[in-house]
Lab assay of single mutants.
Amino acid sequence: IINNLKLIREKKKISQSELAALLEVSRQTINGIEKNKYNPSLQLALKIAYYLNTPLEDIFQW
């Protein structure tokens, strides 16, 4: 999986903590996703895309 979450999140000036709060997950979860240590569920990936107002395929590429 190619993961552009960190790049997109930083472009939008959103911290890991802010995104985690919006998604109701821990900051460690966001960190793990960004470091490719954790693959989000489809539901979480869709929520990330929604809150970042970015197409899912721009954030994650399988």
Rank of each mutant, 00 (worst) to 15 (best):
T54E: 09
Y50P: 00
I59N: 02
E57V: 08
Q16A: 09
F60Y: 04
E24P: 04
I30E: 02
I33E: 00
N53V: 08
L42Y: 14
K11E: 12
L19H: 04
L42E: 07
I8V: 09
S15P: 05
I59K: 00
L52V: 04
T29G: 04
N39R: 15
P55N: 07
P55H: 06
S41G: 12
K47M: 07
I48A: 04
L22K: 12
P40W: 03
T54G: 02
N39C: 14
N36L: 08
V25T: 07
S26M: 04
R9W: 04
K35Q: 15
I48D: 00
E34T: 04
Y50V: 07
L44D: 04
E34L: 04
N3V: 07
Y51E: 06
N4D: 03
N3R: 03
G32W: 12
K13P: 02
L7D: 13
L56R: 03
K6N: 04
I14M: 13
S41P: 12
S17T: 12
S26W: 03
Y50F: 14
A20M: 04
K12L: 07
K13G: 15
G32A: 15
D58R: 08
A20N: 00
N53A: 11
L5D: 01
K35I: 13
I30Q: 01
K11G: 11
S41F: 04
Q28S: 14
I8E: 05
Q16I: 14
L23I: 12
G32E: 15
Q43G: 11
T29R: 08
W62N: 11
S15M: 05
L7H: 13
L44Q: 07
N36W: 07
L56K: 03
K6W: 06
I30H: 00
E24I: 06
Q28P: 07
F60P: 01
L42K: 10
N3E: 01
S15G: 07
N36A: 08
K6L: 06
Y38I: 15
L52E: 00
K6V: 08
T29P: 02
Y50D: 08
L19S: 00
N31F: 07
E10W: 06
P40K: 01
Y38V: 14
K47N: 07
E18C: 08
V25D: 01
Q43A: 14
N31Y: 08
I48K: 00
I30V: 12
I33Y: 06
L7G: 09
L22Y: 15
L22R: 08
E24T: 08
L5K: 00
E10Q: 09
L52A: 00
L46R: 11
P55T: 07
Y38Q: 11
I8G: 02
R9P: 01
I8A: 06
K12E: 07
A45Q: 14
Y51S: 08
V25E: 05
I8P: 00
E57D: 12
K47V: 03
V25F: 02
N36P: 03
D58Q: 11
K47F: 03
T29C: 15
P40G: 03
L56H: 04
E10H: 09
K35C: 12
F60S: 00
K47E: 06
K47W: 04
N53Y: 04
T29K: 07
L42P: 08
K37M: 15
A49Y: 02
S41N: 09
I8W: 07
N39P: 12
P55L: 04
I8F: 08
L23K: 01
A45G: 07
N39S: 14
Q43V: 10
D58M: 10
Q43K: 12
S15E: 06
Y50W: 14
N39A: 14
S26F: 05
P55Y: 03
V25N: 02
Y38A: 09
L22Q: 11
S41W: 03
Q28A: 14
K6E: 10
S41V: 04
S17I: 13
L52Y: 01
K13T: 06
R9S: 02
E10D: 09
K13N: 15
Q61Y: 13
L56Y: 08
I59Y: 01
I59R: 01
S41I: 04
I8D: 02
E18A: 10
T29Y: 15
S41L: 03
Q61F: 12
L52P: 01
A45I: 05
K6A: 11
L23P: 00
K12Y: 04
T54H: 06
E10T: 11
L44K: 01
L5T: 02
N31S: 12
G32L: 15
I48Y: 00
E24N: 15
V25S: 03
L19Y: 01
E34A: 01
L23R: 00
L22C: 11
K6F: 05
N31D: 15
A20V: 02
P40L: 08
E10S: 07
I1N: 10
Q43I: 14
K11A: 14
I33M: 05
I33T: 01
I59W: 02
A20F: 01
F60K: 00
L7E: 15
W62L: 14
A21R: 12
D58W: 08
L23D: 00
T29H: 10
L42D: 05
E10K: 09
D58E: 15
G32R: 15
E34I: 02
L46S: 09
I14C: 05
A21N: 12
K13E: 14
L23C: 15
Q61S: 14
I14F: 08
D58H: 10
K35N: 15
E10I: 10
N3Q: 05
